[in-house]
């Protein structure tokens, strides 16, 4: 924030050159584009969710009359809060577990030299490309063998382990950017390895770690494949199960489906708005300087 303010002042100081003008135009074009791209599906979704029959009055037409049936049935009949609760607990716990574990290993790989470092990176990269069909049977079997079939623990286990590659590279990248002096200073102060990581590096890399956490959370929030595979008790199901109830073998209730889609993204939006401060704004200036 601070530095942005400074930059603005500087721009006026140095006089509006043609370059600043170009920058300005480009900035506004980018912002307009971003807004357009994001709003198109959102407005469409919101409009459709108010239409009694979205297919009968398609596109961006305004609804004839506002129909809240989908929202009403989502909240009244479908136990939304139960799904939210399940998803929150499962997504949150798995994010904490996986991010903690990965921020540890990523630190070691990013900052220390040892044999086999390259292999670890390659192995983790390779996990991104294994198709879920190849994972299905071994994981299903594992879940059964641990006797956690149809429990939330099963999903927590799966989510904590899946997506490790993405989190790993995002976090490792942040570690790499931290100046070496920071660590050295800590070590001179007498910090051990663990302390250096916990007291110095972890807080500095917090923005990166939080970003990775947000990404992981969003993935877990929407995950359906594993959820429908290892959970059978409906009381324990996660949020995407809300959507499937609107689609039967013969027809789809689009009003309900779109309403539920809107409802589903509300919690992540709220969480994001609350937390975005922590990982975008809070880090400029202060953090890296310590």
């Amino acid at each position: 924030m601070r530095e942005n303010g400074k930059r603005k002042k500087r721009a006026s100081l140095s006089g509006a050159t043609s370059l600043s003008g170009g920058t300005k135009i480009l900035t506004y074009i980018s912002l307009a584009w971003a807004l357009l791209v994001a709003l198109m599906p959102l407005v469409w979704l919101l409009l459709s969710s108010f239409k009694e029959d979205p297919l009968a009055r398609p596109g961006f037409q305004l609804p004839e009359s506002i129909c809240l049936d989908g929202y009403i049935s989502t909240f009244r009949d479908l136990h939304v809060m139960r799904y939210f609760g399940n998803s929150m607990v499962i997504a949150f716990v798995s994010v904490v577990l996986s991010i903690l574990m990965i921020s540890m290993s990523a630190y070691v790989v990013a900052r220390l030299d040892f044999k086999g470092k390259g292999i670890i990176s390659i192995l983790l990269y390779s996990t991104m490309f294994i198709p879920p069909t190849a994972l299905t049977y071994p994981v299903y079997n594992l879940v059964n063998r641990l006797h956690i079939y149809d429990t939330r623990s099963a999903l927590i286990l799966i989510y904590s382990c899946s997506g490790i590659a993405i989190s790993f590279f995002v976090i490792k990248n942040y570690y790499t950017n931290i100046p070496k002096e920071m660590e050295e200073a800590a070590r001179i102060d007498g910090c051990g390895y663990v302390q250096t990581w916990w007291r110095v590096i972890f807080p500095i890399a917090r923005p990166g770690i939080m970003t990775a956490a947000v990404l992981a959370f969003l993935n877990n929030w929407n995950e359906y494949y594993w959820a429908s595979l290892v959970m059978i008790t409906r009381e324990k199901m996660t949020v995407p199960a809300l959507l499937s109830t609107f689609t039967t073998a013969f027809r789809t209730n689009y009003n309900g489906l779109f309403s539920a889609m809107v409802v589903i993204i509300l919690p992540p939006i709220i969480l994001y708005c609350v937390f975005s401060k922590f990982f975008v704004e809070a880090l400029s200036g202060g953090a890296v300087k310590g």
Binding site: A34, L35, V37, A38, L39, P41, L42, L45, L218, W221, N222, Y224, P240, M261, I265, P268, I269, Y272, C273, S276
Partner: peptide, 10 residues
């Protein structure tokens, strides 16, 4: 904040 929302939709 708006720009990230579409990425929250599965």
């Amino acid at each position: 904040n708006i720009y990230i929302i579409p990425n929250m939709i599965s």
